[in-house]
Nucleic acid binder design. Structure first.
Lengths: 202, 202
DNA sequence: TGACAGTGTGGCAGTCACTGCCAACATGGC
DNA sequence: GCCATGTTGGCAGTGACTGCCACACTGTCA
């Protein structure tokens, strides 16, 4: 039983190491310019083992991104089906993003690097969308329960809408930073949510 | 000059033939169960030539999906920057979807088949998102001009929001149909847009 | 009619992502 | 010490995708 936790910890550890190696190599040589063998070598494992940790090489660089989703998921219990769900989801995401603290924490720095890389590498962006889709599916199921509705429609609209705001805000965050005019992540996110409202009501 | 148009027509023709073959094989054997060689053989070309028409095998099945995007793009000139853009985009998409006529036209039937296949094949769905991202980029640029703003923020929010409604409505359309309780595509889309509004204002 | 340039096509060889299989090894419980 | 279980690496294989070259087709111009 205790070993289970130990093993889990170890697994997470190597996962991180592989992820770090991947991110580093991708930044230096591009995704096309680095092979799985390269990543494996840098992480001190075999290529075969690499694929026991990640299904594709892009996924390896997305460890910080997955962490973002996981943190949001962990807060799902707080949702209250009796009140409007989108504002609650937005507040939830706001808290999660605040946690990454403009890239000042370790997780924040990693997230920043991944999202920056996405601006240059469409396949990485696509991979992240793929992750979001998988995780979003579970979210939709959860919201559907809370809504007590018999179809996906409303739940999906809510989840995808919230997702749009997060993605747009993250992109703006890294782009502004690279342009030398950094913006606050949480502020930008809140602003994006406001904009979303303005745009749908005007 | 005239041959240019002829060539274009010919290219479109083989494109369609390859696309038809791909869709057919995917439906029967799944995407993983079909190789590019299979598709090429069925379309009467070589594998090498296949890749001169499509960058991946998934893309071959997405010909109807691309047509959808193209029809929408062709109507972009009608947008008026002085009035709210999201409603205009929604009206535009409504017209385009109406054109596919619940799968009664040839294009409509093809679109229906592709979108149905997407429910089963995540990689196909992902490929379609990839297409939408590329095309959406151009749309964002266009909207940004119309808005006269100096950043992407609002344009992206509008484009992605509109995209959410289209995708959700299309999914609902094919799922309802497969469940034996078909719904009208345009009605569903309008309903989805309404829902999106309700969700963001409540 | 015959040389020509431009374009489309197929075949070949090569790289690389990803998988199934098997053998070696470590770990913890008995 | 022995056994069960989980982890790892090597190996061989499949299949997507690319660069290169040779060949064929088409229309042009002398």
């Amino acid at each position: 039983m205790a070993e289970n936790a130990l093993r889990e910890r170890r697994r997470r550890q190597t996962e991180r190491e592989i992820g770090d190696a991947a991110l580093d190599l991708f930044e230096r040589h591009g995704i096309d310019g680095t092979t799985v063998d390269d990543i494996a070598r840098a992480a001190g494992i075999s290529a075969r083992t690499f694929f026991r940790y990640f299904p594709t090489k892009e996924r390896a660089a997305l460890v910080p991104h997955v962490e973002l989703d996981e943190r949001a998921e962990a807060m799902l219990d707080a949702l209250d089906g009796a009140r409007p769900l989108l504002p609650q989801l937005e507040a939830l995401w706001r808290d999660v993003l605040a946690d990454f603290d403009n890239g000042r924490s370790e997780s924040g720095r990693l997230l920043l690097r991944v999202r920056r890389l996405m601006q240059l590498e469409p396949t990485l962006r696509l991979a992240s969308i793929s992750v979001d889709e998988e995780r979003g599916g579970a979210l939709v199921v959860r919201l559907r329960e809370l809504l007590g509705s018999d179809d996906d429609l409303e739940a999906r609209v809510i989840v995808e809408t919230a997702g749009v705001a997060v993605r747009v805000a993250l992109d703006r965050w890294v782009v502004a930073r690279d342009l030398g005019t950094p913006v606050d992540l949480v502020e930008t996110y809140v602003e994006t949510c406001r904009l979303l409202r303005a745009v749908t009501t005007e």
